[in-house]
Design a protein around this nucleic acid. Structure first.
Lengths: 184, 184
DNA sequence: TGCAACATGTAATGTGTTACATGATTCA
DNA sequence: TGAATCATGTAACACATTACATGTTGCA
């Protein structure tokens, strides 16, 4: 049901076409709930049939502009107020950590290096986004809260990966502790 | 494919029955890749047909003990070494944050309070798990790495939720700053 | 003997991804 | 005129959840 409510939530701000909604899912929403056009268009058709959105205009290339109906507005508010978020956590990068012991320590450390690099890049992206200013309305403040979430979690993940790579290397038979007079 | 490799990874440690594997998915793996018995049993049958695992014994109530084959061991090592983890991030609790502006500030703050409480409880669970000691082998060290990940991310999420609830309340028209002589 | 936990499976439904399919508009 | 982007849709497949279905063992 999350996709459904994500669409209603976006349309609560202003009317959008399916294409424009898709761009949101490729942008900021990609970190929270990614979706492709093949899922979005049929879902919009269902929301329309259910009376939660309606078509309120047409754009250049057969674009359909959808708006939230009062019924749709009611639905999303109820979702936010009266239901609790699903907690199904799927994180393949974390799953792999449980099985890192199957690799040599140097290979395990290399995996953690790649993880740290991924988080550093992501963090750089998010910091670039955070640096560009926006208006100071309620909608923007919600968006900034989500962005701040991303910044904090990404920093934490980066630090964890860097620390873990060090810890794994500290256990490696190859280079256990820095020492002098090392023999071949 | 993640479920497939999670099963191979567990069986790389020692033989397990489907039921015992299920218990892992309900326990530590629940935070990384949850799975139910209705998904696990058919997948074990497929892995067996593919020659990645084999049945090596029988337990009391029709329990089947599975072991990893050399081919299966090769597959999971290749997965860890040669493929990159999927980065599809689905987080309904975060998704909702984008739409918090649709609620009154006090309701939005209440949502963030609930989020903070959830993370505090989860953190307490993880800390209890972390407090119980285990052996000091490579497998346990991988597990501790994953646990440390959970601890750090959960603390970050708790802090974010607490700070955000405060920030939202600071913007509320009802109680902007602590003041005396407040009129009804 | 009745309940909880053990133990395995299948079927139906819902959700998500990949692939197929088509056409309009803009710009170089 | 050819490529990129805009714009919408369906079909096939893969993955995940809920529901259906059955039988065993241990214990109070």
């Amino acid at each position: 049901m999350s996709l459904r409510y994500a669409l209603l939530g976006l349309l609560a701000d202003r009317p959008y076409s399916g294409w424009q909604l898709l761009k949101h899912f490729e942008g900021s929403l990609a970190y929270a709930w990614p979706a492709l056009h093949s899922q979005i268009y049929p879902e919009l058709a269902r929301l329309r049939e259910a009376g939660l959105i309606e078509q309120t205009g047409e754009g250049p290339r057969g674009a359909k502009e959808y708006s939230l109906t009062p019924s749709g507005r009611e639905q999303i508010e109820r979702w936010l107020r009266e239901t609790t978020p699903g907690r199904n956590t799927r994180d393949e990068a974390l799953l792999r950590v449980f099985f890192l012991w199957l690799l040599d320590p140097d290979e395990a450390a290399a995996y953690l290096d790649r993880e740290a690099e991924f988080q550093r890049r992501l963090l750089a992206d998010l910091e670039r986004i955070a640096a560009s200013p926006g208006p100071d309305d309620a909608r923007e403040r919600s968006y900034r809260l989500a962005l701040d979430f991303g910044l904090r979690v990404t920093r934490t993940r980066r630090d964890w990966a860097e620390d873990s790579a060090r810890a794994v290397r500290a256990h490696s038979p190859e280079a256990p502790q820095p020492r002098r007079n090392r023999r071949a």
